[in-house]
């Protein structure tokens, strides 16, 4: 591999740093890496650099978040916990621990949803204005796609789904269908309301 290739790969990896840090130091980071490659064995430099990236990228993100906390920080953290605990629930098979993991994941998901909603700027006044039909329907389709995908991938062994997972899947299916139905209903209602709200006399004449 040429030196240019290694430097190019590192330049790409340096994109993992937060934007402000990257804007300030990307050229310096790349120059330091290139100089190291020139002076030492490339393999050793990569070993050290990968370890460096694993430690410093999350650290820089944490520092930039602490400096400029986003209103969505709590939601992002809660969502990360929900995803992590869900993976643990899937990995733990059946048993009481699975239930505990699932309850924690649902709790974290609830916190994520509430904090996300609380962090939203109050642009729209009513719930119906905020919940547009396409968001509801899109969420429903996404949930259904995930659930159907999870049911069909062969990670469940020979038997059926583990008991708690079966309940979660069924609830998710019902939730997905409900979201889709609600979205379509809201869309239809909006369509009728909008057409009725504009009197014929106020509509532009064509021709």
């Amino acid at each position: 591999m040429s030196a240019g290739f290694n430097v190019g790969v590192y330049r790409t990896l340096a994109a993992l740093y937060p934007k402000a840090f990257r804007d300030e130091y990307r050229d310096d980071l790349v120059a330091a890496f290139a100089a190291q490659c020139r002076d030492e064995s490339v393999g050793r430099v990569w070993l050290r650099t990968l370890r460096d990236l694993i430690v410093t990228v999350p650290n820089q993100h944490l520092e930039s978040r602490m400096k400029r906390p986003s209103p969505h920080t709590v939601a992002v953290v809660a969502l990360s916990i929900a995803v992590g605990v869900s993976v643990l629930a899937l990995a733990s098979g059946t048993g009481p621990t699975t239930w505990i993991f699932l309850v924690v994941a649902l709790g974290a998901l609830l916190v994520a949803g509430l904090s996300w909603a609380a962090a939203r700027p109050a642009r729209a006044d009513t719930l119906s204005e905020r919940l547009t039909w396409w968001k509801l329907a899109g969420s429903g389709i996404a949930v259904l796609a995930v659930v159907i995908g999870l049911i069909n991938i062969p990670i469940w062994g020979e038997g059926d789904l583990p008991g708690p997972m079966w309940v979660v899947m069924m609830l998710s299916l019902v939730g997905g269908v409900s979201l889709l139905a609600a979205g379509l209903a809201l869309g239809t209602a909006h369509w009728f309301t909008r057409n009725r709200a504009i009197p014929k006399s106020a509509q532009p004449r064509v021709g």
């Binding site: 790349v30 190291q36 460096d52």
Partner: peptide, 13 residues
């Protein structure tokens, strides 16, 4: 002590 570029510039910053 052998620093990687991220540690170096993070610390300098």
């Amino acid at each position: 002590v052998r620093m990687g570029p991220g540690t170096l510039y993070g610390t300098l910053n």
